[in-house]
Structure formats: structure tokens, C-alpha cells
Amino acid sequence: MITVFERPQSLTPAKTHYCPGCTHGIIHRLVAEVIDELGVREETIGVAPVGCSVLAYNYFNMDMHEAAHGRAPAVATGIKRVHPDKVVFTYQGDGDLAAIGTAEIIHAAARGEKITTIFVNNAIYGMTGGQMAPTTLIGQEATTAPSGRNAETQGYPIRMSEILATLDGAAYITRVSVHNPQEVAKAKKAIKTAFEMQLAGKGFSLVEVLSTCPTNWSLTPLKALKWLQENMIPYYPLGVKKALEEVKV
């Protein structure tokens, strides 16, 4: 018998708490597969954020450190400076990374910390009940923007990858999506490149993954994937924003 599909070693058998159709699960799996393929599970320390993925430490089968909301890049910096030979990654939502933790991510990137960040952008605060995120699109409804985000009073969504790509310490910054199998395959390749950048000691690497939140978008999982494609990608264009060496994704 040949095994064609199995759980990556880097994931525990725990059942996740994610809502049906939420793409957090896919992204977890991609990260785990990449860590397996690179053979670094026993060398890796992950930093779990505050957000829907706050329990990631129960799902990743490796040493994990839970961090306060937004502070994962600082915690990861502390770990990496003590263990420069280990692989350190953070897994952060858009509220976590682009609002409360903006200073930490910008400065980790500017310092060229040799860590990898998986940035899950679902344009909403998932965990706390669908409030407006810094990445919520103009016109998009949120519990704290009941008639849709209004640029006049609530400003504009932030494109974090483009901002981070301007920093010299960043080695690899890219935006991917997971709304269809082709994009999932590309996302995995990008995540692998990001970890390889860290292993090669090139500097800070980040993969922004456009992700769905069917629950707080009030859409079925399928409609959510379509909404992502039609609304998020035009504002958040996919592709490599910065790569120290020629990298094709």
C-alpha cells in the first residue's frame, strides 16, 4: 500500500476550533508541510498570536510560545537572538499585525530579524466578533462599521506587504491567496521560500496570505472564496513585493 495523503508530522492530531470553511486550517497545513519538507520540525519554535489562531500551539507539533496581541515579532526576536541556529516563525492575523502590532512587525523587519512571519489577512477581526480591521475594505461591513467602512471617518485599508517591502532588512515579502487549488500550491511555494530565506540567513521574510472568514463576512464558505477573489485581490494584488534574490512564485 502506498500512502498518498497523511497528516504532516508538524501538525498534532488535535481537532481545530476553526469555523467550517475558514482558510486558517489550509494555511496551518501549508506551514506544517513546508516544515516537514525542510526537515526542521525539531529545530523550529513557533510564536502563536492573539486572534482566531490563538490556539495554534495546540495544532503545531513543535515548541510553541504564545504571545500577547501584536507582540509576536518581539517575542520571536527574543527567541531567535538566543537561538540563532533555530527556525523561528510567527503566525499573525491582520488585527494583530497591522493594528496593535504595527510597531513590532515594522521594526522586526527593519532589523532584518531572521524570522518568518505568516500573515493571515482576512480583512476582519475574526476572534472578537467581526469588528473592523486595519485591512477591512472600503464599503465592507463590520460590527464596528455597520454601514460599511467609510474612508472619510475610518480611513483606508493598509497594504502591509507593500510597506514592509520598502525596508532594507526585509529579504522576502510576498502576497498569496488560498481561494483555489492553484493558488494554494503557489502559497505553499511562497511559504517554503520564506523559510528557506531564514535558513539561508538572508533576513526577515513574510508571506501575507489572503484568507476567508465566512462567519464574520456572513457568507457561505464558497461565496467567501469568491468574495475574496473579487474584492480582496484587486485591492491587495498578489505577487512578490520584495525578494533579495530572483525568486519565482
Partner: peptide, 9 residues
């Protein structure tokens, strides 16, 4: 928070 990470590791 860097201390938090360093102490934890």
C-alpha cells in the same frame, strides 16, 4: 516581549 521570548527559550 523580547525578554518574554528570550526567557521562554
Amino acid at each position: 516581549n523580547m525578554v518574554y521570548g528570550a526567557a521562554g527559550s
